[in-house]
Design a protein around this nucleic acid. Structure first.
Lengths: 152, 152
DNA sequence: GCCTTATTGCAAATGATTTGCATAAGGAGG
DNA sequence: CCTCCTTATGCAAATCATTTGCAATAAGGC
């Protein structure tokens, strides 16, 4: 009874929707935030703060502002945080249903990233919850391997 | 066709075995390394470098030596590295079959750790490998939740 | 437009981990 | 047991990612 994650890779998401969600939470819609969301919209895979900074038009804002913005966006559920194990946090825009989530497969040679459909089976997670007595379970799961390119 | 991880929590492992494995790889058996292995032997769950340092008898060695030793032990397969998402690496002694591995369930309130039997299903991982073309797949998986104590 | 409050920039602090380098300690061979 | 060569270690300082303090600035409601 496993239930794979659903994800909407390419589903377009309008900047207006995002700014609207910001407004709902009485957060100000500032230049840096709009620009950052604009960048995130274009990225298909998780990106680091430094990368976001680099993708931003020159002079939009400070790196510190990127950090602070990502914290805010994460807390608001607009982006999701990932850890690929290299010491730098990565963020990906949440598209569509915020309940959905997906995992990644990262090439340990070239760091190419591929989205994965498969998720940890719900039934198993439920079993873990029952056996341990823990509630509100969630998990962090990422895969690593050698991509086709790097196998030669 | 899922295949849960096997793990030998309490299986005793002799220091001699460990030093022997060190010797095989022509690494020196130094005081700090023996003391660190001794500490690791006693720990049931992953511990940070700082914690290892604290558990070591006073003056055994420098924190830097702990970092370097853990790198070595990890490379030699004597310990495994884990990331609980709080910015500090944690290590656990590999007991028994080095093929085995297990995951953890961490309480997000008090950081209590529980070992988990369930692992990501082999069949699904194989499927991911086939679909993506990636080889030598591995995964990092940790669970988070609220432990019984913290639910009240 | 004005005012209150959230936001930003910049510098500096943190925390984990790594590195350079001179000194000290394993251990193979005699 | 002693010597020599190599690996380890201590200590200080460098890196890296991320956070924080604070004064200056911009958003948005009224």
């Amino acid at each position: 009874m496993s239930r794979p994650c659903h994800h909407n890779h390419q589903e377009p998401i309008k900047l207006d929707d995002l700014t609207e969600r910001l407004r709902e939470k009485s957060q100000k819609i500032t230049g840096p935030r709009q620009a950052i969301l604009e960048v995130m919209r274009r990225e298909a895979h998780p990106v680091t703060n430094k990368k976001i900074m680099a993708l931003l038009p020159d002079g939009v804002c400070d790196l510190v502002t990127v950090y602070r913005s990502m914290h805010l966006l994460e807390k608001m559920g607009l982006v999701r945080r990932f850890d690929f194990g290299d010491g730098a946090a990565r963020f990906e825009l949440v598209r569509g249903n915020s309940e959905d989530h997906h995992h990644h497969l990262i090439c340990t040679e070239c760091t190419t990233v591929v989205e994965i459909e498969q998720c940890f089976p719900n039934a198993l997670e439920k079993q873990i919850s029952q056996e341990s007595g823990f509630k509100k379970l969630s998990h962090k799961l990422e895969f690593f391997g050698i991509c086709p390119e790097c196998q030669s």
